[in-house]
Amino acid sequence: MGIFGRFRQPRGSGAGAHVRGMRDSDLAHLAEWAAARTGVEGFVEPPTFVNEMTAVLVAKDGEWTRRRVHNPKIARKVGEKLGIPMYDVQKTGYPQRMRDYNERQRILEKRARRERDQE
């Protein structure tokens, strides 16, 4: 073992393994989320004036989650660790199923509000 060997993060090949440049809690969330769903794909979102660069995972039914990543290289590593394809959202756009899911959620929230107001 080298002089700094005992201070290094353990290397692993599992989905919960560390990805340099990303918080372990964010990686764990993405891994758990992807494992619980089918047909998951990833999309790298560019930084904006308000938000940092993010990775969005989208399931087959359109449900999605988002976590911060520091650069596209890290996002690609996350995709490799999770075994899912990662796309550049600026090139591919968001999948239609994600927009459909968001619209369904808006409709359900509107119904729930209306029902609460009628009580």
Rank of each mutant, 00 (worst) to 15 (best):
R11V: 10
R8T: 10
T48M: 03
P95Y: 01
E41A: 15
G39Y: 08
V89L: 04
K73N: 14
E103C: 00
M98L: 14
F7A: 13
V19C: 07
A36V: 03
G42Q: 12
P47C: 01
V78S: 00
P46V: 05
V19H: 07
R76Q: 08
G14C: 13
R37F: 09
R6K: 15
N102F: 03
N102D: 12
Q118G: 07
V56F: 01
G62S: 05
R99H: 14
L30M: 11
T48Y: 06
P85C: 10
F49Q: 12
I74W: 08
I74L: 00
M22W: 02
E41I: 06
V89C: 06
G21L: 01
V78W: 04
F4T: 15
P85Q: 14
T48N: 05
D24Y: 09
K77C: 13
Y94V: 07
E80A: 11
T65M: 02
R20W: 12
K110G: 11
E52S: 00
A15M: 07
R66E: 14
P47W: 14
V44Q: 09
L108F: 00
D61S: 08
E109T: 03
R106Y: 11
K91W: 09
A75V: 01
E63K: 00
I84T: 02
F7R: 10
E115M: 04
E52P: 02
E103N: 09
G14K: 08
A28R: 02
E119G: 09
V58Y: 02
G42R: 05
D61M: 02
P10G: 07
Q105T: 06
R99C: 11
R104L: 10
R11I: 06
R97P: 11
D61Y: 03
R76M: 08
G39N: 01
V78D: 01
R8D: 08
A28M: 04
G83K: 06
R8Q: 11
A15F: 12
G79I: 10
R6T: 09
D117P: 02
R20S: 15
V78Y: 04
P72N: 08
R66G: 01
E52W: 10
G93W: 06
N71K: 07
T38S: 15
R113Y: 12
T38I: 07
T65K: 03
K91D: 13
E115D: 11
H18I: 03
D61H: 05
V58M: 04
L30P: 08
V40T: 04
G79D: 13
Y101A: 08
L82V: 03
L30F: 13
A59T: 11
A35G: 14
Q96S: 13
R114P: 04
I3E: 15
A36Y: 03
E103T: 04
G16S: 14
D24I: 12
Y101V: 01
R111V: 05
A28I: 00
